[in-house]
């Protein structure tokens, strides 16, 4: 499978990438590691006429402990996340979830900013950043803005990013409060049929592949905040969701998985 023809330009800086996006409009796409975009282009599900390569912006590859949070450059690769001492100390959940994405070769190339911008409801890292209550920094022609992970995902493979914006940094709160991540799949390297992230002792609970976007399990979070037991809260995991039906699972089974995995994740995270 070969992608449709396109023009290609290497961005020399984030400013340059944004200028190119402005010039070429919404027929252009940013290419980071390419491990979501290139497969979509091979299937011709994406046919951008201009591909702007931001994968060489090494100044956006960093993991830094800052005041109360960890700042991660958008071009940081999954492999760097899973081997990060900074994350081991300050946000072990993100380190762990990064180690579950795809396989080692995929993790050598895929980037945190890329997987977030791709906004795949079946991906692991968006759900982790969501449970952690992360903040995404986007740069556009008129400067940068901060977007709460909660407000970032708007639809199937869609986010609030404007056509001329790019993610530059992801911030996750520092903290090692009870966390867990459950990824349920049948084969190695598959996407989760359903996944569950629990952060900060149950203050953040997120769901993978339970709708058109990565979701917060708000009913579970609210029940826990109101003093419900983990078992009672987990029973609400599928509330308000519209999970997809596909070859792996129908919507009812996904609801069952969500309830089961939320309880499992809460228990593992030390929430009773």
């Amino acid at each position: 499978m070969i992608p449709a023809a396109f023009d290609y330009q290497v961005a020399e800086s984030a400013d340059h990438a944004i200028a190119l996006l402005g010039e070429h409009g919404d027929e252009s796409k940013l290419l980071a590691g390419g491990h979501s975009l290139v497969p979509m282009m091979k299937f011709r599900l994406a046919t951008p006429t201009m591909v702007i390569d931001v994968g060489r912006l090494d100044d956006l590859r960093y993991i830094r402990a800052e005041n109360g949070h960890v700042a991660i450059g958008a071009l940081t690769r999954h492999h760097e996340l899973e081997n990060s001492d900074v994350l081991a100390d300050a946000c072990p959940m993100l380190k762990h979830v990064a180690s579950l994405v795809g396989d080692p070769s995929v993790r050598h190339r895929g980037t945190l900013g890329g997987t977030l911008a791709h906004s795949d409801p079946a991906s692991d890292l968006p759900a982790a950043v969501l449970a952690l209550g992360g903040t995404l920094v986007a740069q556009g022609p008129s400067g940068t803005r901060e977007i709460a992970a909660n407000e970032f995902f708007t639809g199937y493979f869609e986010s609030v990013l404007a056509p001329d914006e790019m993610l530059t940094e992801i911030r996750v709160p520092s903290g090692t409060g009870g966390w867990n991540y459950q990824k349920f799949n049948r084969r190695a390297q598959d996407w989760a049929i359903v996944g569950v992230g629990v952060a900060d002792g149950g203050k953040g609970v997120s769901l993978v592949n339970m709708g058109s976007v990565p979701l917060r399990a708000t009913a579970v979070e609210e029940a826990l905040a109101g003093g419900a037991s983990a078992a009672d809260a987990a029973a609400l995991a599928a509330e308000g969701t519209e999970p997809p039906t596909d070859l792996n699972a129908d919507a009812d089974y996904r609801g069952h998985l969500a309830r089961t995995l939320v309880l499992r994740a809460l228990t593992e995270a030390g929430v009773s």
Partner: peptide, 26 residues
Amino acid sequence: DTSSCGACTIHIDGQSAKSCTLLAVQ
């Protein structure tokens, strides 16, 4: 040809990568 099987694995700057899921220009 879909980055699942790894038959096309090579090293880029010393790290394994699947060459069916990379553009030559990358």
